[in-house]
Measured scan of single mutants.
Amino acid sequence: VPQRAWTVEQLRSEQLPKKDIIKFLQEHGSDSFLAEHKLLGNIKNVAKTANKDHLVTAYNHLFETKRFK
């Protein structure tokens, strides 16, 4: 089981690129989880459509539901 890579403050910070969060989610989330949160596909394309709040919610949801690969 992966550990949380970032704190809530870090997740919301401008310093953390959306692409980093997407990469983490794609590496650790199950396909059904990723599909549900519309996070499947090319990281660049996902970054265009997903806002930061959406990614933070998905990140927290992944750990709450433990839907890891």
Rank of each mutant, 00 (worst) to 15 (best):
V1Y: 14
V1N: 09
V1K: 05
V1P: 11
P2N: 03
Q3N: 10
Q3G: 06
Q3R: 09
Q3M: 08
R4Q: 08
R4M: 08
R4E: 09
A5M: 15
A5T: 11
W6C: 14
T7I: 03
T7C: 10
V8G: 06
V8Y: 08
V8F: 06
E9K: 05
E9D: 07
L11I: 06
L11R: 01
L11G: 01
R12I: 10
R12Y: 15
R12K: 13
S13F: 02
S13V: 02
S13Y: 03
E14Q: 11
E14D: 14
E14S: 14
E14V: 10
E14N: 15
Q15A: 13
Q15N: 12
Q15M: 09
Q15H: 09
L16Q: 03
L16E: 01
L16D: 01
L16F: 10
L16N: 03
P17E: 11
P17V: 10
P17Q: 12
K18P: 13
K18T: 12
K18Y: 04
K18F: 05
K19Q: 15
K19E: 15
K19P: 08
K19G: 13
K19C: 15
D20I: 14
D20G: 04
D20S: 10
I21Y: 01
I21H: 01
I21M: 03
I21C: 01
I21F: 02
I22G: 00
I22H: 01
K23H: 08
F24E: 03
F24N: 01
F24Q: 02
F24R: 01
F24C: 05
F24H: 02
L25I: 07
Q26T: 05
Q26G: 02
Q26S: 04
Q26A: 04
Q26L: 07
Q26D: 01
Q26Y: 05
E27T: 09
H28L: 05
H28P: 00
H28A: 11
H28N: 13
H28R: 05
G29I: 01
G29Q: 01
S30P: 03
S30Q: 10
S30T: 11
D31T: 13
D31L: 13
D31K: 12
S32I: 08
S32G: 08
S32W: 07
S32A: 11
S32H: 07
F33M: 02
F33G: 00
F33W: 10
L34S: 01
L34N: 04
L34Y: 01
L34I: 05
L34Q: 04
A35G: 08
A35E: 11
A35K: 12
E36H: 09
E36V: 08
H37Y: 14
H37C: 10
H37S: 04
H37G: 02
K38L: 10
L39T: 01
L39V: 04
L39C: 02
L40F: 10
L40I: 12
L40V: 12
G41H: 05
G41F: 03
G41R: 07
N42Y: 13
N42D: 14
N42K: 13
N42L: 13
N42F: 11
N42W: 12
I43K: 06
I43L: 10
I43M: 10
K44E: 15
K44W: 14
K44P: 11
K44D: 15
K44N: 15
K44G: 14
N45D: 15
N45Y: 15
N45M: 13
N45G: 11
N45Q: 13
V46S: 04
V46M: 07
V46K: 05
A47V: 15
K48F: 12
K48I: 13
T49M: 13
T49N: 09
T49V: 11
T49H: 11
T49K: 09
T49L: 14
A50H: 09
A50N: 07
A50L: 13
A50G: 05
N51W: 06
N51K: 09
N51M: 08
K52P: 03
K52E: 04
K52R: 15
K52L: 07
K52C: 09
D53C: 08
D53T: 07
H54G: 11
L55R: 01
L55Y: 02
L55G: 00
V56K: 02
V56I: 15
T57M: 13
A58S: 07
A58G: 02
A58Y: 04
Y59S: 01
Y59T: 02
Y59K: 01
Y59V: 03
Y59N: 01
N60P: 00
N60I: 15
N60V: 15
N60A: 08
N60G: 09
N60L: 15
N60F: 13
H61Y: 09
H61V: 11
H61F: 09
L62Q: 00
F63R: 02
F63N: 01
F63D: 01
F63Q: 02
F63Y: 10
E64Q: 11
E64M: 10
T65N: 10
T65S: 11
K66D: 05
K66P: 03
K66Y: 09
K66S: 11
R67V: 06
R67S: 13
K69C: 07
K69L: 05
K69I: 06
K69S: 07
